[in-house]
Nucleic acid binder design. Structure first.
Lengths: 200, 200
DNA sequence: TGTCACATGTAAGACGTTACATGATTTT
DNA sequence: AAAATCATGTAACGTCTTACATGTGACA
């Protein structure tokens, strides 16, 4: 349901399937991803349903571009979707599933390595969004609250990504710290009385 | 890939498909969901592959239960999965997509209502997790850092859900506040000089 | 000469959702 | 008598991923 409406929304300004894929990668990927093999058939179906129109245009290099644009019916459908109340679907996060069962390995060194690696990945994702924000801020002095409406909504979704990204990195840091603390206290308990006395 | 490994992990203690569905609903749903129509065929396939074994047991009421358990081969597969490095997949969040295109409606009252409704949904999700945590804390004085390893990892995933949930609610609150501030400053600009003078 | 960017597609298979089918027992 | 819970499944459909197929023009 959603991909089709996202394409309609993007096609308020005409574009080819190839263009749309690039736009996904550049700006939308932090909350939705789509491959060309999904985009092309969907555009065809939307055209058949009368929600899009298309025309072929020669390109500078490579085969001709098929440029799609939103029709009136398409705009009606888009608006109807935007009026639906928000609904939250369960996100599926494989690395949380792995962590959930991590005790099976009985190897907290490995668990710690897993969490460190995860922390790195999460931090990288966050850094990408932070670069986007930094760029936007230098390019437009109205950022973030004086932006015109259309850009303001984009900023709200970016803010969501940033907030979530920061929360996740913080969480991973806390996990690492807590695991290390446990490892230390376990070592203490393993050694005989000596260490306890030495600690006073 | 992940559902199959999650089932293997859950079946370290034997259970029926029906039991597993209940366990998803009760504790795992904040990072993975699965319907019975997905669980039953998957259990059959895993048994055919030799990763699970099953036996029929009479039930107190209703039809006989088919109880599955992890085999040695299943445990090997589970461990191999747990040793894979974490990888982050793009989450697909429809309500962020709706927000992204929300300017199309040209109706900031409606956008505000959308965000308020969203805030409510997000707060509810968070409340569920907070109840789980509160319950756990009163039931086990070792919560959270003195828990045994197996429960400690579960707590880490719960902590992830809590942190993310709080970040999302905060974000929604900020969105609402910022939208309201914009609405006020727009009204100010629309009205002629009078309102500005009255504000002193 | 090879690889990259441009450009459009198809096919097979995995994963997920919703609806349907069946039937016993317990609770309201 | 009706509805909820226990319990197992199938079928149809929609979504997503990965791999394959094809060809041009630019650049190294």
């Amino acid at each position: 349901m959603a991909l089709e409406h996202i394409l309609l929304g993007m096609l308020r300004t005409p574009a080819s399937g190839y263009d749309l894929k690039a736009e996904f990668a550049a700006s939308i990927s932090h909350f939705w991803a789509a491959e060309l093999s999904q985009i092309y058939p969907m555009l065809q179906r939307l055209e058949k349903r009368g929600l899009l129109s298309s025309k072929s245009e020669p390109s500078d290099r490579g085969p001709p571009r098929k440029v799609y644009a939103l029709t009136k019916a398409g705009r009606v459908e888009l608006r109807a979707w935007l009026k639906r109340p928000p609904q939250i679907n369960t996100e599926r996060i494989e690395w949380l599933a792995q962590l959930w069962f991590m005790d099976e390995l009985g190897d907290n060194e490995r668990a710690l390595a897993f969490l460190s690696a995860l922390r790195g990945e999460l931090a990288q994702e966050l850094a990408t969004l932070e670069r986007v924000e930094a760029q936007w801020r230098v390019e437009d002095s109205r950022y973030p609250d004086q932006l015109p409406d259309n850009e303001f909504f984009l900023q709200l979704t970016l803010a969501s990504g940033l907030k979530k990204g920061r929360a996740r990195v913080e969480w991973a840091d806390e996990c690492v710290a807590r695991m290390k603390a446990r490892a230390r206290s376990k070592k203490g308990r393993k050694g005989n009385g000596r260490r306890t006395r030495a600690a006073r």
